[in-house]
């Protein structure tokens, strides 16, 4: 039973991070119509941003966090205006390839600047496990879960209650109609990219005390986030969080009860099965998009 709970907690805390990354995919997919394969690399950018702010500049975490998030927003914005905005009316294939290109560019840029070796990052919430009964709870895991859920709730309030959020949703539903209604579509696109970059970056910042900071972090986490987004239904924000957490739990149980050699393949197996049997995901819209 303890083993079960332990693996469950582990799965949820990893899954919350997958969910955060997955939401970035969903936001951009809704607004832009294609998957952003550079989303994983924003996770890596987030990890390096907090590394620079906290470790290199020596700022306390409470200041380093906002600064790192601002850095992510700026990089997300720069990527959007330089690589994605010029392609706003291009066909899907070209836009998809642009996202892959941006990912490769970011990864190698960071590799040139920082080198390929991993960097250690100090623990934020202390690295001694707290004993609850016979359960060992790592504080970072709890915080990752809490912050992950918190951000998702904040995001949905933002999308539903604020003017910008509403116009973002309108743009996502029908870009042409939104434009006719006087909504500044370009501005909305920028905001969408900035928010999803910040969310991805946030996931990266939460990961780096558990793992290390390494340029290939994005590839690995991006794939997991993508699988989570697809499992949740690529168009649904709450769905992507549920998808992410389900994937985290599946991975954890797969390794714990079945065989650890299958752990890495689970995300891909999920991708595969969802595409065949559940193309709309858990919470996605049933009908296909109008082309």
């Amino acid at each position: 039973m303890n083993f079960f709970l332990q693996q469950l907690i582990q799965g949820i805390s990893m899954g919350a991070l997958y969910g955060l990354i997955a939401i970035g995919y969903v936001l951009i997919y809704n607004a832009w119509g294609v998957l952003n394969f550079a989303q994983g690399d924003m996770v890596m950018i987030g990890a390096f941003a907090i590394l620079i702010a906290h470790v290199y500049m020596g700022l306390p975490l409470l200041i380093a966090f906002p600064i790192a998030i601002i850095m992510c927003c700026i990089i997300g914005f720069l990527v959007e205006i330089s690589a994605f905005r010029p392609l706003i009316d291009a066909n899907n294939t070209r836009r998809l390839i642009a996202t892959i290109g941006v990912g490769i560019f970011l990864r190698n840029l960071v590799r040139v600047i920082f080198g390929a070796d991993p960097y250690p990052f100090p623990s934020i919430f202390g690295n001694t496990a707290v004993n609850i009964g016979e359960l060992k709870i790592i504080p970072q895991n709890i915080w990752n879960t809490v912050i992950g859920f918190g951000l998702v709730i904040l995001l949905s309030i933002f999308l539903k209650q604020t003017h910008i959020g509403k116009s973002m949703r309108a743009t996502a539903q029908d870009r042409e109609a939104a434009r006719l209604m006087g909504i500044n579509v370009k501005k909305n696109m920028s905001i969408t990219f900035i928010i999803s970059s910040a969310l991805g970056g946030f996931a990266g910042m939460l990961i780096c005390p558990v793992f290390f900071v390494i340029p290939t972090l994005g590839t690995l986490m991006g794939n997991k986030g993508f699988a989570g987004a697809l499992l949740g239904g690529i168009t649904s924000n709450p769905g992507s969080m549920i998808g992410g957490i389900s994937l985290g739990i599946l991975e954890s149980f797969g390794a714990g009860y079945f065989s650890s050699s299958v752990q890495a393949g689970i995300a891909y197996a999920v991708l595969f099965l969802v595409l065949i049997f559940l193309p709309a995901g858990l919470l996605g819209k049933k009908e296909s998009r109008k082309v």
Partner: peptide, 20 residues
């Protein structure tokens, strides 16, 4: 006896099995 991908970052599930 636990395996992991060379690129894996989360070793906790394997370590939990070792602990168990």
């Amino acid at each position: 006896n636990e395996a992991f991908e060379p690129s894996a970052l989360d070793m906790t599930p394997q370590l939990l099995s070792v602990q168990k």
